[in-house]
Design a protein around this nucleic acid. Sequence first.
DNA 1: TTCATAAATGAATAAATATTCATTTATATT
DNA 2: AATATAAATGAATATTTATTCATTTATGAA
Lengths: 190, 190
Amino acid sequence: MKVKDENKINDIYTATLKLVRANGLAGITMQSVAKEAGIATGTLYIYFENKEMLIIRLFDACVKNSASDFFKSYDPGSPFKVGFRVIWSNIVQHRISRFDESILIEQCFHSPFIDEDTKTTLKKMFEPLVQLLDRGKNEHLIKNMDTFWLLTFMIGTINEIAKRVTYFNKKLTKEILDANFQLCWDGIKA
Amino acid sequence: MKVKDENKINDIYTATLKLVRANGLAGITMQSVAKEAGIATGTLYIYFENKEMLIIRLFDACVKNSASDFFKSYDPGSPFKVGFRVIWSNIVQHRISRFDESILIEQCFHSPFIDEDTKTTLKKMFEPLVQLLDRGKNEHLIKNMDTFWLLTFMIGTINEIAKRVTYFNKKLTKEILDANFQLCWDGIKA
DNA sequence: TTCATAAATGAATAAATATTCATTTATATT
DNA sequence: AATATAAATGAATATTTATTCATTTATGAA
């Protein structure tokens, strides 16, 4: 018997991400996804119940990718600034190298596809970072303000860096990366 | 003869913004917009050629609103930090009070509705801020790095503040606003 | 090599949505 | 007050898009 080619799921995801980035969640059709993925329309329905489930599954996959990337090789036992820098760099790299996924997550946030509960779980993704920031405050290394705002500040700068690197086709050299980290660090340091 | 009620355009815009925020550009239909605006579907077509033009016009209106808000009561002759603070506050206030418009602009950026040229003109919106930052560098008040990255940093933090104030229903007190400005200022200052 | 089974196909159908238009309504002008 | 004109309506139509399904294709098992 013919067996399901699990690779196709990745092809479908890749195709969808490309189209969402180019045309928005508004712009994709099952036909266009199938065409971009190089399969027949009907085949989509072998792998996904319907359009909504395709988006939801893809969204979940993207969130999982984020979670695993953000804290890669982060050692909670390392000095505060070292750990902070590792996570900062990880998130920047993730956002840039997986920009399409970030766009999808952003678009899903304002879509009928993703429910409130799912949005809430997104918050949990940053838990290790929250703990690190709390520790930094205890050690009087960073400003003593609500971690919520410190996180907001940090994520905000990172997201915008990723967007502008992509949109304006900027090269992120080691020097520029360092300078950008310095902006963030000087902002939060005590 | 019956005369066109120009007020309706605002009703339509308001309805569309509300729906886009809730359901994304993907989620709106001409029927839902008409219903939300309290008019008949056909009436939409008296004011807008078609769906695409409705979105494009609304997008333009939102961009114009931004441009006029960002530099309100900004005096280019004032000391650097004063001017910087005015613009920073203006953008924060704008993003929060007109959050729906920001969402629409963001969504349009990844949609088939807005062309590349239009996206480019968005950049020009920040020209007075670019000039102010250049001046700040000349006066050695802020870090001597590419204005592009200083702008990225500033806009990034602001956008994220607006998002999180809205999504997490946070109250922006004078104290919190000041503290957030401090984060940004400490980041860019020389 | 044949068979059985599930994947893959894509045209056909169903469903959703944009757009039109014959009719009604409101109001400036006379 | 009567008329003319354009807005407003919303059901009907056209168009687009999601989904299905009869048929074909590929491949592990016998």
